[in-house]
């Protein structure tokens, strides 16, 4: 039995810090793994496990930012959705972009949800909390 893991794909360290804090404040105790760019994100799923590393765990939820260096969020999403094993992963696009285009594309590519990061921290906190609650508690996922 392993803890439910949240994969946070976020390039900005500040955002990362804030999100983690928010998650903590929301009493979400899951482990949060952070990928700092698109490649790292994909590596998490598709890299051969190096020796000595523990077995990689399918996250309960992927919080995916769009603006990422190397490979951007949409690419990652596409790749995830293209692969059988990660096709059904709950992916929440969690971005500060308010471009409609981004939203469209995200859904097209199969994102489960699209949430804009609010500027105001309270809202940010609230949003995070709700996300967490929903996706981690309420939402059913395909079991491993």
């Amino acid at each position: 039995m392993h803890n439910k893991v949240i994969l946070l794909v976020e390039d900005n360290p500040r955002d990362e810090a804030l999100t983690l804090r928010a998650l903590k404040k929301s009493n979400i105790v899951n482990d949060v793994i952070v990928a700092h760019d698109g490649v790292e994100a994909l590596d998490y799923f598709f890299r051969e496990a190096a020796s000595g590393e523990s077995e990689k765990v399918m996250p309960q939820l992927v919080l995916l930012d769009l603006k990422l260096p190397k490979l951007n969020g949409l690419e990652v999403l596409r790749r995830l959705r293209a692969t059988e094993s990660t096709r059904r992963l709950p992916v929440v696009v969690f971005t500060s972009s308010s471009e409609e285009e981004d939203m469209l594309k995200s859904y097209e590519l199969g994102a489960n949800s699209y949430v804009r990061k609010p500027v105001e921290f309270e809202q940010f906190l609230e949003a995070t909390k709700q996300l967490g609650l929903y996706w981690l508690v309420l939402n059913e996922i395909v079991p491993d």
């Binding site: 900005n12 500040r14 955002d15 810090a17 804030l18 804090r21 928010a22 769009l66 603006k67 971005t95 500060s96 972009s97 308010s98 471009e99 990061k117 609010p118 500027v119 105001e120 921290f121 309270e122 940010f124 906190l125």
Partner: peptide, 18 residues
């Protein structure tokens, strides 16, 4: 702008709140 300008704002806000 929609993305990049907002991010620092979010950070300012977030960290001051923290």
């Amino acid at each position: 702008v929609s993305h990049d300008l907002r991010a620092p704002l979010r950070h300012i806000n977030g960290f001051s709140q923290a």
